[in-house]
Design a protein around this nucleic acid. Structure first.
Lengths: 299, 299
DNA sequence: CAGTTTCGTTCAAATTATTTGATCGACTAT
DNA sequence: ATAGTCGATCAAATAATTTGAACGAAACTG
């Protein structure tokens, strides 16, 4: 039972014009219409609604309380409709209304935030949704259509329908707090020495497949946290040790809040990637991929 | 420059019908219209928008991404419009869309919450906004048009344009924590004895005129808090003493968390009132006043 | 106070917009 | 193959809106 709309947008436009110009006549002039046409539109609206929108008992018509409600809320509807119109037009022009991005927890914040700033400055109408993901999380979010772009993924599995571009390199630094026992140990530190201390681990944010594991040495006690920021804070507080992305800890090491230690089995620097699904990329996605890989090439 | 609306609601209705019934033809049948009329509406929409809403390259028309966005967001606009229509009709029928109520902090919660529950059950479409106010706060909120109703006010000043109905009586009980020194004092306690201990005071929530004061004894150290609940918790924790509305402390006294003490100058029970502005009362307001005063008469 | 302007309504006529119904070509399912 | 369904198109019919002229009521104007 599709209720036919008792309120029509052009009636709301007319109502708005009457309010803004002060009278039916002035509204008519502003709308390039004759006053009787405005009268007609409003009385049409009133009879469909079954409600008096104007009180005509005096000389000039004045809004009733119901009319005031209709006007105030109607204006929201009008702007929402115009917004929708332009969002649809932009989408047809391949500018997506929203872009969802998974950012791998290893991505140093300093590398990504400036890009976010210039994105939002350049594309103010596009909603940007950022999710921090860990290990397989970004990959899964991309595969499962929860994001359009995954940034900073290492060693992505080959997969039909996923494209990628190189972003940069991720190197790890083994860290502990200055007061931690390992800070005084003989370097390079071997696995067995490390294994005696609690390791800080960032939990994989993948919901379904947890096939990957981090830099873990078996039998080592763990403290698992849910984000890189928390992991580093925990290490700073001496709660454990671990390999951290170089970009995340450079400042803390320079400030003396963390100590960088050479280890026997230092992990190789790994290439990181930007990933997206094959198929029609919107312009905002293209812009972001370009900006990411360009800043990568510049380095 | 009133942009004429490129999107019309009946086009959105048609779009919705096509999506729900699966084809132009089925939508036409559902709308009691001929298929070509549906075609006409949609191509009208598309040409005004300058965007293809359907992809007609295959046998059946299928929504483009832009069309999908238009449909999804358009549905919101449709329901918002219908809601607006019925809100306007209800308002014309004197059912206000929103009712704002100031509740004096002395009102025992047990007296008011059941009423709120039955209000929301009976009037699900009416937004109820409750604000707790202290001393002159309710009065001021009413005078300044920030609420339609003030509940539980004591000794309202006479004022042109404010109506009232009796609600009940408010009696005060002097309380302290079981471990507080006053708990062991000789009763009835006189003012001088009280004055040696910190008084808990609820801050007046009036913004402009603070003409009223509570049950204060001069020279007494105070601890001022911003709500009755906080005041009572503070007394329970032994942070001070004070007169409290009987309805607020009965349970704590019964449970032994508070001690009720007889004092020399026990305040008289005061009548409390329900207040509203003279003039057109909406039906929800009338309902609430009736319910409040009826439950008052029952006691 | 009379004259003038502005207000908003009403009505028939003119103009526009939508709906109909018939027809068509393309594709599906039997 | 052969209905049957889908959606587009077009002229004609119908419906809705806009116009323009006329009107009464109220508010200015001098």
């Amino acid at each position: 039972m599709p209720t036919d709309p008792s309120i029509r947008l052009d009636a709301l436009e007319t109502l708005d014009a009457i309010d803004r110009h002060g009278s039916f006549a002035a509204a008519a002039a502003a709308l390039y219409r004759v006053p009787s046409a405005v009268s007609y539109t409003i009385s049409q609206l009133e009879s469909e609604l079954g409600v008096a929108v104007f009180d005509r008992s005096g000389h000039r018509a004045v809004l009733t309380p119901a009319g005031r409600l209709l006007l105030d809320e109607g204006r929201r509807i009008l702007t929402a409709t115009q917004e929708l119109g332009s969002a649809v037009r932009r989408l047809a022009d391949r500018w997506e209304p929203q872009l969802r991005v998974a950012i791998d927890a290893t991505m140093p914040p300093s590398a990504f935030w400036p890009l976010v700033a210039s994105f939002t400055a350049r594309h103010p109408r596009i909603d940007l949704v950022l999710r921090e993901e860990v290990l397989a999380g970004s990959w899964e979010a991309l595969i499962e259509d929860r994001v359009e772009l995954a940034v900073g993924v290492t060693e992505p599995p080959a997969h039909e329908g996923i494209r990628r571009a190189p972003l940069g390199t991720l190197s790890f630094v083994f860290c502990c707090a200055p007061g931690h026992p390992l800070a005084a140990a003989q370097t390079p530190i071997d696995d067995e020495t490390i294994r005696a201390h609690r390791a800080l681990v960032v939990a994989d944010s993948a919901r379904h497949f947890n096939e990957r594991s981090g830099n873990l040495l078996d039998g080592q006690p763990r403290l698992t946290v849910s984000g890189m920021r928390t992991k580093i804070e925990a290490i700073e507080r001496g709660l454990g040790v671990g390999y951290c992305p170089a970009g995340w800890v450079a400042e803390a090491v320079a400030a003396g809040r963390l100590v960088e230690l050479e280890t026997v089995r230092t992990p190789e620097p790994r290439p990181t990637w930007v990933l997206w699904r094959r198929g029609d990329r919107g312009r905002a996605l293209i812009w972001l991929i370009d900006a990411l890989t360009e800043s990568a090439r510049a380095n």
